[in-house]
Amino acid sequence: MAGSTQDINIVAQAESGDALQQGEVIAPAEEHAAEGEHAAPADAAHGATDTHASTEAHAEVFPPFDPASFGGQLLWLAITFAALYFLMSRVALPRIGSILETRRTRIEGDLKEAERLRQETEKAAAAYEAALAEARKNAHGIAEETRAGIKADIDGRRADVEAGLSKRVAAAEARIQADKDAALANVGSIAAETAQVLVAKISGSVTAAEAKAAVAAASKE
């Protein structure tokens, strides 16, 4: 077996050399340059073994190019890929799709709800602002009113008090004036009496009328 393998390999290499030389002519047709090196000997080996012993052919053919395996592989590929397609299209993908769809609608719904709540909040905030402004205005009005009332009250009282006070001041002034007048009126007679007493003590008697005249004359100087 080992001997025949080597023989075949030698033949294959020899032939592959020819094949490669010929291959240059038909090179554009060969797309798979990457495995060309391997493919060429394999094809050549295939040809070589076919001529030598057809029973050994399958063992020595480059396996990916062995036509004997094509039928079975195609059959199993058809079965497995059909099963895969069926499982994917009927079970797995609809399930994943529905999961994603559920999540998407849920997120959208949540976002919409959040948006609705946000708008509600904004509305409430606006109402609160309005109420606050109104209250502030009211409070301002009330404060103004109160201040005005208090001011009027204070002014009234002050006016009352001032009026009372000036009346009393006037009365007091009038009384003072009267007292002063009376006191001033008494000053002459007191001075005359004093002068009469003093003169009497110093130089004998003098009448009240003479004393009065003398005082009046003195106070005139």
Partner: peptide, 16 residues
């Protein structure tokens, strides 16, 4: 049932 078929079945099985 070859090794090739086995891995086709395994692939489908693992994916599914």
């Amino acid at each position: 049932f070859t090794n090739s078929a086995l891995f086709m079945v395994l692939s489908v099985g693992v994916i599914a």
